[in-house]
Computed example of a mutant assay.
Amino acid sequence: MAGLRERQKADRERRILKAAVTQFRADGYRSVRIEDLAEMAEVSVGTVYNYYQTKGDILIATVAMEVEEVLDAGAEIVADPPGGVDEAILRLIFQYYDHSLEYLSKEMWRTAMALSIEAPGTPNGRHYSEQDQRLAAQVTDLIAALQARGDVRSDLDARALGELLFNNLNQMFIEFVKDDEMSLDALKARVAAQTRPIATLIARHPA
């Protein structure tokens, strides 16, 4: 019975998040009410509040859902990076970017970022920062894997490099979501142009 209850709980939560993704995209985060999400998810308003205290909690949960999926996909890249330092780093970064609008619109990302900045000490703020930390750690893991394979200089600090690369890709993503006219291809082109010189500098045998 416990297993059934857990499955039912997980199903209700998935329905709530699916409703949030659909309605936030269609009507805008600020226009959607908890009652709207409950109706679409076919649960009571009270059930929604059993899972999430605020609408902001639901939005940050969609960010966490997105991050979980990109981390899973990124783990495969880290486990077997493609040849070439620049190719390996950009494969991971582009995997993040390509998935970034799967659940969240640019407007949703801006709101989630604002929530995390306005109140960094709240559960939402901490949760958002934790997602960034996990992504930065994965970039670091990739650098360490490239060092182990002999592609990146062993005298360099993998963590410092991972944080540097993540900070840049994250800042460029912020620029992307701020600009409704910027395309994903334009973002990727700019980040590739910034990343390739760094890859050449840290490569053990620069091309």
Score class of each variant (00 low, 15 high):
24 F>K: 06
142 L>R: 08
128 Y>C: 06
34 I>K: 07
198 I>A: 13
105 S>R: 11
64 A>R: 10
186 A>P: 00
153 R>F: 05
145 A>D: 02
177 V>A: 10
131 Q>R: 15
204 R>L: 03
107 E>Y: 04
18 K>L: 12
110 R>W: 02
161 L>G: 03
26 A>F: 02
109 W>Y: 11
100 S>K: 06
24 F>N: 02
50 N>P: 00
145 A>M: 06
122 T>Q: 06
16 I>V: 14
83 G>M: 04
198 I>L: 14
26 A>M: 08
62 T>R: 04
87 E>K: 10
203 A>N: 09
183 S>L: 06
68 E>Y: 04
118 E>T: 11
92 L>E: 01
113 M>W: 14
175 E>F: 12
180 D>N: 09
123 P>I: 08
67 V>N: 02
148 A>Q: 14
171 Q>T: 13
53 Q>C: 01
118 E>D: 14
21 V>R: 06
51 Y>R: 03
95 Q>Y: 00
15 R>L: 10
98 D>H: 11
112 A>G: 15
91 R>K: 13
92 L>W: 00
65 M>P: 00
31 S>W: 06
156 L>M: 15
21 V>L: 07
92 L>Q: 03
52 Y>E: 07
129 S>N: 10
80 D>A: 10
40 M>F: 04
36 D>A: 11
56 G>I: 00
136 A>Y: 09
168 N>I: 10
118 E>R: 12
33 R>K: 15
56 G>R: 01
91 R>E: 05
4 L>F: 13
70 V>W: 05
144 A>N: 11
190 R>L: 11
173 F>Q: 06
42 E>V: 12
129 S>Y: 06
55 K>Q: 08
53 Q>E: 15
33 R>I: 05
137 A>H: 13
152 V>L: 10
163 E>D: 12
158 A>V: 10
106 K>A: 05
145 A>V: 04
167 N>P: 00
41 A>P: 00
61 A>F: 05
108 M>F: 02
15 R>F: 10
19 A>I: 11
193 A>N: 07
